[in-house]
């Protein structure tokens, strides 16, 4: 089984406390929806894969410009409940990020402000276990974006497929080869991780495509390395 994570978070306790403390009704009802019990088996969990495109990498300076989500379970990704929003950033786009995500100024002119979609987003997140690839982006950007609009940030557990892939790589790493070749150089980026499981190449940097790609990656990681009857508490961080 997976190495126990550095400090297992007691998410049920955190959510109970947050529900009491939240001043804003949207957040209070998000926390009130709760989470699956920490002993729920992975195969029974309802996940929500989520991906953001942003104007840059620093949550303090940059903004979210699109959000893709898709609900899934270990055996199925449900595209009919997938969503993508384009969101107007508070500051100007810079040209180099346009190159990456392909979202242009004109796309954003008609886009709503984040405040208009918080309700829709939170109601879709509520009760689900969020799955991302590299958790600081989604966690910190969402926390900051919500805090800026309603004065209170958000916390939630995630399964991070990049983090999982790192653990898996470590577990399989051959120490002799590492020594010979100066440590592992295997990439745990989304595309390269997917390749290891025979997953197809998708065009990266579209929020919904990346969310779908992340959901598929978790299905593959679970099929290869973990028992679907493991409890969720072994995986969320």
């Amino acid at each position: 089984m997976l190495n126990r994570l550095e400090k297992a978070m007691d998410w049920e306790r955190i959510f109970r406390a947050k529900k009491e403390d939240s001043h804003h009704s949207l957040l209070a009802s998000f926390y009130a929806k709760g989470l699956p019990n920490k002993d729920t088996l992975i195969e029974d969990i309802e996940f929500l894969a989520m991906d953001f495109e942003t104007t840059g990498l620093d949550p303090a300076k940059d903004d979210i410009i699109s959000i893709g989500i898709v609900p899934f379970q270990l055996n199925r990704v449900y595209l009919n409940q997938s969503f993508q929003w384009t969101i107007s950033p508070r500051k100007q786009l810079n040209e180099s990020s346009v190159v990456i995500h392909g979202i242009t100024h004109s796309d954003l002119e008609k886009a709503p402000d984040m405040s208009e979609i918080i309700d829709a987003l939170l109601s879709r997140m509520a009760g689900k276990v969020i799955v991302v690839h590299y958790n600081p982006i989604e966690r910190e950007f969402l926390d900051k974006a919500i805090k800026e609009r309603i004065g209170e940030g958000i916390v939630f557990p995630v399964i991070d497929t990049m983090y999982l892939e790192n653990l898996i790589r470590k577990r399989f790493r051959n120490r002799l080869l590492d020594w010979l070749f100066g440590g592992s150089t295997e990439s745990v980026r989304l595309g390269q991780s997917r390749e290891r499981y025979g997953l197809p190449t998708y065009t990266p940097h579209h929020a919904l495509t990346d969310a779908i790609a992340t959901a598929e990656l978790l299905q593959a990681q679970m099929a290869y390395h973990f028992d679907p009857k493991s409890p969720i508490k072994d995986f969320w961080i």
């Binding site: 899934f72 055996n75 199925r76 990704v77 449900y78 595209l79 009919n80 499981y197 025979g198 997953l199 197809p200 779908i212 959901a215 598929e216 299905q219 593959a220 099929a223 290869y224």
Partner: peptide, 29 residues
């Protein structure tokens, strides 16, 4: 809009005789 995606590791059965079939399958990879 209605597609559902499913991953199968090499060697695992997708459908077995007598199963109740609910989908048409398209091999993506």
């Amino acid at each position: 809009q209605h597609i559902e995606i499913s991953y199968y590791r090499a060697g695992s059965p997708v459908i077995k005789i007598g199963d109740h079939l609910q989908d048409l399958f398209v091999i993506r990879s």
